[in-house]
C-alpha cells in the first residue's frame, strides 16, 4: 500500500511539475502585453488539473474524505470561472 501511494505521488508530482512548467512557459510569451483569451483558457484548465492533483494526491484525500476533496476543488473552480468571466467581459 505504501509503495502504491509512493508511486502515485511520484506520478502526480511529475504531472503537476510538467503542467506548471508548460503553464509558466506559455504565460512567459506575453511580456507586458495582454494575454489572448485562448491562452487564459488553457492556463485556467491547467490550474484546475494541478489543483485536483494537489488535493487528491499531495494532500492525500484520494479515496479519503471525498466530500472534503470535492468542496476544496470547487474553490479554485469557482475563481477560475470568475477569471474567465472577467476576461470574456473585457472583450465586450
Amino acid at each position: 500500500m505504501k509503495a502504491k501511494e509512493s508511486s502515485r505521488l511520484f506520478s502526480s508530482a511529475n504531472w503537476v511539475m510538467m503542467l506548471a512548467i508548460v503553464g509558466a512557459l506559455i504565460a512567459a510569451q506575453w511580456k507586458h502585453e495582454a494575454v489572448p483569451l485562448a491562452v487564459i483558457v488553457i492556463i485556467l484548465v491547467l490550474t484546475l488539473i494541478k489543483a485536483r492533483l494537489i488535493i487528491l494526491d499531495f494532500m492525500g484525500l484520494r479515496g479519503d474524505h471525498p466530500a472534503m476533496a470535492a468542496a476544496l476543488w470547487v474553490w479554485p473552480a469557482f475563481f477560475s470561472l470568475a477569471t474567465l468571466g472577467r476576461a470574456l467581459g473585457s472583450l465586450w
Binding site: 503553464g23 506575453w30 499531495f58
Partner: peptide
C-alpha cells in the same frame, strides 16, 4: 496595471511553489 507585472517571474514562482508542495507531500510520506 496588469501589463506592469512580470508573468515570467510569477510563472517561475508557480513552479517553485509546486516543487515545494511536492517535497512537503514527501515529508508526510
Amino acid at each position: 496595471g496588469k501589463l506592469q507585472l512580470s508573468t515570467r517571474l510569477a510563472g517561475f514562482n508557480t513552479v517553485v511553489l509546486l516543487a515545494s508542495s511536492w517535497t512537503a507531500a514527501l515529508a508526510v510520506q
